[in-house]
Computed example of a mutant assay.
Amino acid sequence: MNFPSHVNVPAETREEIIDLLNTLLADAIDLHWQIKQAHWNIRGTHFYSRHLLFDDLAKHARKQADDFAERAGTLGGYAEGTIRLAAKNSELPEYDLKAVESEDHLRALVDRMARYAASIRNGIQRCDELNEPITVDLLTQVLGDVELDLWFLESHLNGTGRPVARKGGREDARGEPSRTPHA
């Protein structure tokens, strides 16, 4: 911790949560710029609508980064939010620079967004174990927004108009009736 804080959370717990928030901050900054990479370079089918969607998603990631940084500061931490620190500390994989077509960008962003959501969910579980409800609440709200954004992205990939077969469903991956009996 770098700053005084009178938040009623034990110092060692605050330190762990600050580290967790700084990792999520790095992921959010990295995700923001990966989404902007897709925004600037998308081509192909549905260019305009996806270009605008990516811009909205980037704004969301930027807001989430701000939320993580401010919570770290509230706990007495130092927000590690420079581009260089984000690149060093992000747990997201590097963006696929070969992505050009809309579908390529969508798949890359769905992957990054799903990983980001999983990290936030893990953060919720850890903060709950540490009995820190305010950070749990923040992360829960952010996760809801991220999963909604993920749904918007996935909806562009699943544009067939048919539901995807669920495990134990009666259709195969092409939407055809299954020939195998179900228990």
Rank of each mutant, 00 (worst) to 15 (best):
E80N: 11
L106A: 07
H105D: 00
N89M: 10
Y95L: 06
G81R: 02
D111M: 14
A72G: 08
A99W: 03
R112G: 08
V110L: 08
L97A: 11
G76M: 02
L109C: 06
E103T: 11
D66R: 02
D67Y: 09
E94I: 09
A86H: 05
V100C: 07
L97C: 06
G81Q: 01
I83A: 14
R115E: 09
E70R: 02
E94D: 12
R115G: 14
A72Y: 01
L92R: 03
E101A: 14
P93I: 02
E94F: 07
R107T: 13
F68E: 05
D111L: 14
G73C: 10
D96N: 14
K88R: 13
E91A: 14
G81L: 03
T82S: 15
D104V: 00
R84C: 06
T74M: 12
A108T: 11
Y78R: 12
N89L: 10
D66E: 13
G81C: 06
S90C: 03
D67F: 10
L85V: 11
V110M: 06
A69T: 04
Y78F: 14
S90L: 03
M113S: 12
E80S: 13
L109I: 09
E70H: 05
F68H: 12
L106D: 02
D104Y: 00
A99Y: 00
L106M: 06
A87N: 13
R112N: 14
I83Y: 11
A72F: 00
E94V: 10
T74H: 09
A87P: 00
K98E: 13
R84E: 13
V110A: 10
K88S: 14
V100A: 11
G81I: 09
E94A: 14
A86K: 01
E91W: 10
A86N: 02
E103H: 09
D104F: 00
L85G: 08
F68Q: 08
L106V: 07
D67L: 12
S90R: 03
D66W: 04
D111S: 13
V110N: 05
A114I: 06
L109K: 01
D96G: 02
L106S: 06
G73L: 15
E70Q: 07
E101Y: 07
L109H: 07
Y95T: 01
D66K: 01
D67R: 08
E80L: 15
F68K: 05
R115Q: 12
A86C: 00
K98W: 01
G81A: 07
E91H: 15
A99V: 04
M113F: 11
Y95I: 08
V110F: 06
T74E: 11
D66I: 00
Y78D: 11
L97F: 13
E103Q: 12
L92Q: 03
A69E: 05
A69W: 00
H105C: 01
L75E: 02
E94G: 09
A108L: 05
L92E: 01
D66S: 06
A99G: 05
S102G: 15
E101G: 01
D104Q: 15
E80T: 12
G81M: 00
L106Y: 05
H105M: 00
E103K: 11
R71E: 10
A108M: 10
R112L: 15
R71A: 10
A79D: 05
A79W: 03
S102K: 02
G77Y: 03
S102N: 09
A72V: 04
V100F: 10
T82P: 06
E70M: 03
D67Q: 13
E80P: 03
D67V: 08
E101I: 07
R71F: 09
L109M: 09
D66M: 00
L97M: 12
L75R: 01
